[in-house]
Amino acid sequence: MMDGKDKSELQARLQALVQEHRDLDAAIDALITQASCDLLQVQRLKKRKLKLKDEIAAVQDMLIPDIIA
């Protein structure tokens, strides 16, 4: 069972991950709109964004455990 401290730490981690995901989205959009767009950089940022999405899902799973019926 998770105590309040663990839950608040996970919620803080989740918030940080979501914010980083949003920031990467904005950075990718900014890079794409530039005339001299570095496609390799965009690709790396998109890969990082996907990893963040997986981390976000993992933390959410920890916060909301499956209900065993």
Rank of each mutant, 00 (worst) to 15 (best):
L45T: 09
Q19N: 08
K46T: 08
L14H: 01
E55P: 04
E9S: 08
L31S: 14
D66K: 10
K46S: 12
C37M: 15
A58R: 06
D66H: 09
D23W: 02
V18G: 01
M2T: 06
D38W: 10
K7S: 03
A35R: 15
A30W: 12
A16N: 07
Q43I: 06
D38H: 10
E20W: 10
D38P: 15
E9V: 05
V59P: 10
D54C: 02
Q43W: 07
K46A: 08
D29E: 13
D66Q: 11
L14A: 07
K53I: 03
A69F: 11
A69W: 05
S8K: 04
R44T: 10
D6I: 01
E20G: 05
A35N: 15
A27R: 14
E55T: 03
A27S: 14
I28P: 15
L63P: 09
A58P: 08
C37W: 13
L10N: 05
K5S: 04
D25N: 13
L24S: 13
V42P: 15
S8L: 01
Q43C: 04
S8M: 03
A69I: 10
V18P: 06
Q15P: 03
L63R: 00
R13Q: 12
I28A: 07
P65D: 01
D23V: 10
K46N: 11
D23P: 12
P65G: 02
